[in-house]
């Protein structure tokens, strides 16, 4: 990877591309642009792309097709740009392999935070993860299956622990309800979202300072959950 990360923007609106280009240049990124799905895939295929910003509604196809094609040869991060009312699309995109999404309109601060998080994750991949994870006042030893909060041991049920471990394994990343349900409860539970919600509630009650205003186990309304290590 070169010093300057290369970001590919696939977006049909020229003004939005321009604003993204300015914002990313300020972050020290090299920006590639495509207004059509096909051009985007060609640019991505040339290699050397560290991050893709993808609009879901493109004139020559669905952004989800882009993700499926891109995932054929690359596991590089993909950030979706989409509207608030399009939860269904976001979920489909995430299930197809996108890493995160931003809801339009968004501020520069948000954009920078998401881009940095994705780049960090990319840089970290391949580095052996430590079995001990800390967030807030909680310490989780994944190897020994021990959880403490403010030094006090916290008792978790097996499912609670599996859920916690899965969320810790994807810091800062959105996990769709569907994925969490399928991985933890099994494929026959993908429609039983209430299980997931009840268990996330348990984790919040045991590990958050204020379960009604969580700082680590965040809800992505209509989509899924995100584990935020820092506050």
């Amino acid at each position: 990877m070169s010093d300057k990360p290369r970001v590919l923007i696939v977006e049909d609106e020229a003004q939005i591309r321009q604003f993204l280009r300015l914002a990313l240049a300020a972050e020290g990124c090299t920006v590639l642009e495509a207004s059509r799905l096909a051009d985007g895939l060609t640019l991505a295929g040339d290699g050397g792309v560290d991050l893709v910003l993808l609009d879901l509604g493109l004139p020559d196809g669905d952004g989800i097709d882009f993700i499926r094609a891109y995932r054929g040869w690359s596991d590089g991060p993909v950030l979706i740009l989409s509207a608030r009312t399009e939860e269904r699309h976001k979920i489909d995109a995430l299930d197809a392999g996108a890493d995160d999404y931003l809801t339009k309109p968004f501020g520069i601060g948000e954009l920078h935070a998401r881009v940095r998080a994705l780049m960090r994750r990319r840089a970290r991949s391949g580095v052996a993860a430590s079995p001990v994870v800390e967030f807030g006042e909680v310490v989780v030893d994944l190897a020994r299956r021990l959880v403490t909060r403010r030094g006090e041991p916290v008792r978790l049920t097996p499912i609670e622990f599996r859920l916690l471990a899965m969320m810790l394994a994807h810091p800062g990343q959105v996990l769709t309800q569907r994925k969490l349900l399928a991985d933890i409860w099994g494929p026959s539970y993908v429609e039983s979202s209430h299980y997931l919600r009840v268990y996330v509630g348990h984790l919040r009650q045991k590990l958050e300072d204020d379960p009604t205003q969580p700082r680590h186990f965040l809800t992505e309304t209509g989509v899924g959950y995100r584990f935020q290590p820092g506050s």
């Binding site: 609106e13 939005i16 604003f19 300015l22 914002a23 309109p105 968004f106 501020g107 520069i108 601060g109």
Partner: peptide
Amino acid sequence: RTPLTVLVGLADA
């Protein structure tokens, strides 16, 4: 949404 996204983003920038 398109002009709004640009407006919000650029103002923030």
